[in-house]
Design a protein around this nucleic acid. Structure first.
Lengths: 278, 278
DNA sequence: AAAATAGTGTCTATAAGACACTATGTT
DNA sequence: AACATAGTGTCTTATAGACACTATTTT
């Protein structure tokens, strides 16, 4: 920022150029399994490898905007910045924007819903891109259902890949993805963002499915149910129920929508985690 | 990262140059009050204004290294990367390095201790620096005591400023500082990082002073005491006590050092916060 | 002696989790 | 009929916080 320096006055133009990119870790849940949006690279380096969607920031474009644009380019969903919390809340993350899918304001069958996107971290190790110095600002996005990914207009392909069957990734994207997953798991504890994975309305069971997919552990149905309803503002009733019972039986479930809470209190903590404490 | 593009092939060199800087929000506690390290700018823009210490990243230098270097340049303490947790923990932050003061391995009176430094967030709004496009990667540092700030060799001055008496800051540094403070407050809940503000050894009262300074609320001495000791690995006894009682009376306090926990479980949650929940 | 502080004891309200159970839907 | 699921009741244990209290040290 300030060009204070011990030696000469630092003119960035005197240095080899630095490129700034934005990479997006977009997560969604398909068939009860957590998936991440990946693109297949068409050109070297790492041609043929899968990578996180991303690209260079453009002149006049804020970082958040760049992330939203990149996500939109891959998913086809047009997104717009809805707001940014002044000073990050709770477990204090940084910039967070909420993007809402437009085009189909009807909350019908398909796309429906909001996409949550927030900044994750930046990566700038020399050599992480063999071509030049690249600093990547990564973003984390939670998407409901699957706005079926469409390949960019270049030669590459885009797809939602289960995190249980990840291919080798290009660059340091595996590390970025690891950070993103840990962040996502933590966010579900303190925020109502699990609802961003669900549709406009959802059952408590579906919400539990989100937690189980992201955390990778089974949760006790009864206790989860009571707990969710006991957290003020997490969900609010629609008064509706599902049309029918579950595919393998059971009564119709009540439908809820996201409540107005920005933080969950008390939080839904992940069961144990001895290992991670020390 | 990947040069996928809808239109032409994007060559970053075809764009106006982007500069990447690192800004550090270094916090310490002086006389029971939270202070932040600021430098007075010697040149336009914002000449005469206070700003966060920072500067351009250098070729071959990782972002973490740049942050450590910037901090060292202002505080005079030489720091070195000690380690980085693979996948961030708990409330899931990203890169985290622990820098330890060298030079005086003796844990005597003065400097002593470890400096914790971790990446906070990046800021890249167009126009945030009037000169050119600048993306700033900000860092948050917790420092024990005060390695008395020394001005850089340029015309500017450096000082620890109480967060209760902040001057107007240059650029968007006030926003960065706000994010940093919120992050710091949250980190104290889930991690043992409060010990990074204390010396090599400390009393429970001193530790409580850290929490009170950062959170800005008084805490119940008795309950805090019992709670800290009940969290596994937060602190460990040295078997020693202070030489004398407090300045205004009271028995000698037992001395502790930081324990081996990386996360606090159960966490020390801030009292209430109704407002922030909705 | 008075005042401040370190540290402990105790009680209450809340929350987490284990478990059991009813009701309602499916195949 | 058998089975899966939605949702509720109950019990045990852990935790947060209020409050009281003793012991030790300084002024």
């Amino acid at each position: 920022m300030d060009e204070r320096e011990d030696l000469a006055d630092y003119d960035p133009r005197a240095y080899p150029p630095v490129a700034v990119t934005v990479d997006v870790v977009a997560l969604t849940i398909i068939e009860g399994l957590l998936h991440v949006l990946l693109v297949e690279r068409g050109e070297p380096p790492f041609a043929g490898r899968w990578a996180l969607p991303g690209g260079f920031i453009r002149p006049g474009e804020d970082l958040d905007q760049a992330a939203i644009r990149e996500l939109a380019e891959e998913t086809g969903m047009t997104a717009s910045v809805a707001g940014e919390p002044a000073a990050a809340e709770g477990p204090a993350e940084e910039t967070a924007v909420t993007a809402s899918a437009s085009g189909e304001p009807t909350e019908g069958t398909a796309v429906a819903g909001r996409v949550h996107i927030e900044q994750l971290a930046s990566y700038g190790a020399p050599g992480r891109d063999p071509r030049m110095r690249v600093v990547s600002v990564s973003y984390l996005a939670f998407a409901p259902r699957l706005p079926d990914p469409r390949a960019g207009s270049d030669a590459s392909d885009a797809a939602w890949i289960s995190i249980d069957h990840l291919p080798e990734l290009a660059f340091d994207h595996e590390r970025i993805l690891d950070h993103a997953l840990e962040r996502a798991r933590a966010k579900l504890e303190y925020t109502p963002l699990a609802t961003a994975f669900a549709g406009e309305t959802f059952t408590i069971s579906e919400l539990r499915g989100v937690y189980e997919a992201v955390w990778g552990v089974p949760l006790h149905a009864g206790n989860f149910h009571r707990k969710v309803l006991s957290v003020p503002g997490f969900v609010e009733s629609t008064g509706q129920t599902t049309e029918s019972g579950g595919p393998r039986g059971g009564p119709r479930a009540k439908l809820y929508r996201a409540g107005d809470a920005r933080l969950l209190h008390p939080a839904l903590l992940r069961p144990e985690r001895e290992e991670e404490i020390r």
